[in-house]
Design a protein around this nucleic acid. Structure first.
Length: 488
RNA sequence: GGCGCUGUAGCCAAGCGGUCUAAGGCGAAGGUCUGCAAAACCUUUAUUCGUCGGUUCAAAUCCGACCAGCGCCUCCA
């Protein structure tokens, strides 16, 4: 095979690396060579006969069990495969560091990130601070923590002393004693307390470093957030958001750092959002069950993706699948059809007709109330759907409707669905329009079909409609004539 | 083991003590319009909210237990 190295070592390391040792009651004595095991493991996993990941989870979740020889083989293969994947990532990073172009390395991903955000119509933040550009702020915050007695320096490594901060654990509802006795915390010899976390890490040879009064090193995770938010937003600011997984330890540590350093409360409101799940599991790099924004946007419109998200509450978990996005896209059709209709009517510029009162103010009030209620976007979206239905109802009920009516409708939708939620779009979507299609050609075909219809030659009319549909042009007949829509 | 989140129609998902015989979307069924489509509209699609108890005049909503799924508690961000 030769693809992986030292499988016998992996065999010995399974218990330690993949599953809690005490949970495995027995590992069978292997008669196969390590190479044979790898081969067998690959076969089983590739064919889907054994899922090593589920075995590790099952055991990690408390089940005690004996392993079967084939299961061991699959675990060996799994471990080797993971190592190989991680190695390739580390190799890339190492190379970037060695070539002293890690700024370039990062820039590539930052650019891609912004591209995706724009595609998703995310509003831009005012500032996107970089930790590497705030070293002075970071270092002085650590200095102040050390000076105030919240941090200690051990041989160039500076740690935050958790026990000095009375309110530690308040945000996450944790209790220091529970945490200390928790089985999963490894004791680091350097720290006074296993919960103490690094503020400054001494540089190992070959690593990038910055100068400080503790020597060459780099900041620990957490401190850059405290330092940068303090600098740009002030020592005490209104809202701090983040994923649920950051509550502990990251946000807890940010509070500890900022409060201790500034002698002030840190933030007023914490917003923590639920995970995007795949098959009910957190989407994450380590589970390699992630989908990139780019992939999704290649298959679904921005509005569909946004509608999908806004139809659920931000705090809860949300399962992600192509199927659900397709359903969201279908719902969007209702919006698109109305948008098309409005554009059409506004172009006609007809002044006569009625402008029925559908109580826009009430819809507006409901929309605002929903958004005010901790961003209940699901309810806000429901208001939009109700509104659209009401508008359509009036259109079908009323003989002649004035431009005024459509204008009012458009204003409301722009204020809510377009600007706030971003689930509707009044601009002509260049991306979906097929520029190769000649407008004159379409009109000619429509005229020919109308002719056929007048002659009651429906077979011919239907055939023309079919042909155009294959070109991505959908025809719609109405009292006022035939219109078309480019779909793709 | 500790802390926390979730469980509502075929699917997604709001509602979090009375207005709930439970919003909205997708799907499905029937209808109006139409030569037919499409769109749009109308009607139907949960007497019930994971299970079992309790509190209350009143519970999907509060409390308790249990069941199921997920997450954090370790490195990295």
């Amino acid at each position: 095979m030769g693809e992986f190295e030292k499988p016998e070592k992996e065999l010995a390391g399974i218990k330690k690396a993949l599953v809690p040792e005490e949970k495995i009651t027995e590992i069978p004595i292997e008669k196969r060579t390590p190479e044979q095991m790898l081969e067998r493991g690959k076969e089983l996993v590739d064919k889907g006969e054994i899922n090593p990941q589920s075995i590790t989870e099952e055991i990690a979740n408390g089940k005690q069990r004996a392993l079967q020889p084939d299961e061991v083989a699959s675990l060996v293969y799994y471990k080797a495969k993971l190592d190989k994947e991680f190695d390739s990532v580390y190799k890339k990073i190492d190379e970037a560091i060695k070539n002293e172009n890690f700024n370039e390395f990062a820039k590539k991903y930052i650019t891609a990130f912004f591209d995706d955000l724009e595609e998703l119509k995310r509003m831009k933040a005012d500032i996107y601070p970089k930790a590497t550009e705030h070293m002075d702020d970071i270092i002085s915050m650590i200095e102040s923590l050390e000076d105030k007695g919240f941090a200690y320096n051990i041989d160039g490594n500076v740690f935050y002393e958790v026990s000095k901060f009375k309110e530690y654990g308040k945000l996450s509802g944790k209790n220091i004693d529970d945490l200390v006795s928790g089985a999963r915390i490894e004791i680091n010899e350097d720290k006074k307390n296993p919960l103490d976390f690094a503020l400054w890490k001494k540089a190992k040879s070959g690593e990038p470093y910055w100068e400080s009064r503790w020597g060459k090193g780099r900041p620990g995770w957490h401190i850059e957030c405290s330092a940068m938010s303090c600098k740009h937003l002030g020592e005490y600011f209104d809202i701090h958001a983040g994923g649920n997984d950051l509550i502990f330890p990251h946000h807890e540590n940010e509070i500890a750092q900022s409060v201790a350093s500034n002698d002030k409360p840190f933030v007023k409101y914490w917003l923590h959002f639920g995970f995007l799940n795949i098959e009910n599991e957190k989407m994450s790099k380590s589970l390699s069950n992630f989908i990139t924004a780019r992939d999704v946007l290649a298959r679904h419109s921005t509005e569909a993706v946004r509608l999908f998200f806004t139809q659920a509450y931000y705090r809860g978990p949300l399962n992600f699948s192509d199927e659900l996005l397709v359903a969201a896209g279908k719902g969007l059709e209702k919006f698109k059809n109305l948008v098309d209709r409005i554009s059409l009517e506004l172009n006609k510029n007809r002044t006569e007709g009625a402008a029925p009162d559908i109580g826009i103010k009430q819809f507006e009030d409901k929309f605002i109330a929903a958004m005010d209620d901790d961003f209940n976007t699901a309810q806000a979206v429901a208001v939009i759907f109700d509104f659209v239905k009401e508008v359509n109802r009036r259109i079908t009920e009323t003989e002649h409707i004035s431009v005024e009516f459509y204008k009012n409708v458009k204003v409301f939708l722009e204020k809510t669905a377009v600007e706030v939620l971003g689930i509707m779009n009044f601009d002509v979507d260049d991306k979906s329009a097929n520029k190769d299609i000649d407008v004159n050609f379409i009109q000619q075909m429509i005229d020919r079909r109308t002719e056929a219809k007048n002659e009651k030659n429906y077979a011919r009319a239907d055939k023309i409609r079919e042909e155009l549909k294959e070109l991505g042009i959908e025809l719609k007949d109405s009292k006022e004539g035939t219109t078309y829509k480019i779909v793709n």
